[in-house]
C-alpha cells in the first residue's frame, strides 16, 4: 500500500518529462548529436567580409523554418540529393554527398528546423495562386532577362531539359523546397539572409519581387 505514492510520483514525473519534451527539442537533440552544426549555423548570419562568408560550409539554418517547406525537409533529410553543382562556397570543387538520417530522425529534425523563423519574412506576402497572363510573362522576363537569375541558377524547360548557370542552387524544383514568402524577402534584402553572398542586390519593386518569387516557387 505504501508503494502507491512512489509509483504515482514516478508516473507524474515521467508524464511531465514526456509532455515537456517537445518534438522540436527531440529534433534539436538529433541535430546536435549528428554534428549538423559543424556545417550549418543556427545563429543569424553576420559576415563582415568575404573571407568570413567563405568559411561557411553549408547554408545558414537560423531561418530554415521561414525558408524551407517542412515536407521537403523531411524527405530531403532522409534521402538527400545535391542541389548544387559545386561544393558550398568553393565553385572549383564537386559537392560532397550530404549525410542522410533515418526517416524518424528526419521527421524530428524537420520539426525542429521548421520552428526556426526569421521575423523579417512577411507571412502571406506572396500568393500561393498560380501567376496568370501578363504577370507570368513579366515574371519570366525578369527571371530570364531583366535580372537574369538563370545565369546562375538551373531551371527546367517545359520539355524537362535542365538549362542555366550552375553557381547558385538549382531552382528546377524550387517550389518543392522553398516558401514564396521567403523568396520574396530574400529578393528584397539578400544581405539580411546572406551578407556578402554572391547573389547581386537587385533594385526590385515590391510588385516585381512578389511576382518573381511566385514564379520561382512555381518550379516543380
Amino acid at each position: 500500500m505504501r508503494r502507491w505514492p512512489v509509483i504515482a510520483l514516478t508516473a507524474i514525473v515521467f508524464l511531465f518529462t514526456w509532455v515537456s519534451t517537445s518534438p522540436a527539442q527531440e529534433g534539436e537533440a538529433i541535430f546536435k548529436a549528428k554534428g549538423c552544426e559543424s556545417c550549418h549555423s543556427i545563429s543569424p548570419p553576420k559576415f563582415g567580409s568575404i573571407e568570413e562568408k567563405m568559411k561557411e560550409k553549408g547554408p545558414n539554418l537560423s531561418y530554415a523554418g521561414s525558408k524551407y517547406k517542412e515536407e521537403w525537409l523531411k524527405k530531403w533529410l532522409a534521402k538527400p540529393e545535391n542541389i548544387r553543382y559545386s561544393k558550398y562556397n568553393i565553385l572549383s570543387l564537386k559537392p560532397d554527398k550530404h549525410v542522410g538520417i533515418s526517416e524518424k530522425e528526419a521527421d524530428e529534425v524537420a520539426k525542429y528546423l521548421s520552428a526556426l523563423k526569421d521575423a523579417k519574412v512577411v507571412s502571406g506576402a506572396v500568393s500561393s495562386e498560380e501567376l496568370k497572363g501578363g504577370e507570368k510573362v513579366k515574371a519570366k522576363t525578369l527571371f530570364e532577362k531583366k535580372k537574369a537569375c538563370y545565369a546562375c541558377h538551373t531551371v527546367k524547360t517545359p520539355a524537362g531539359k535542365l538549362i542555366g548557370g550552375r553557381s547558385g542552387p538549382d531552382l528546377s524544383m524550387a517550389g518543392e523546397r522553398l516558401k514564396g514568402d521567403w523568396v520574396y524577402s530574400y529578393l528584397k534584402a539578400p544581405d539580411h539572409f546572406e551578407p556578402k553572398g554572391r547573389s547581386p542586390v537587385f533594385a526590385l519593386s515590391d510588385g516585381d519581387a512578389k511576382i518573381l518569387a511566385a514564379y520561382v516557387v512555381s518550379f516543380k
Partner: peptide
C-alpha cells in the same frame, strides 16, 4: 563575384559558362 561566370583566371570559363545561355 566574377569567377562564377568569367572563371578564376578571367578566361570566360567559369561554372556558369554553359552552352544553353
Amino acid at each position: 563575384y566574377c569567377a562564377s561566370c568569367h572563371g578564376e583566371e578571367g578566361k570566360g570559363d567559369g561554372i556558369n559558362s554553359v552552352k544553353e545561355l
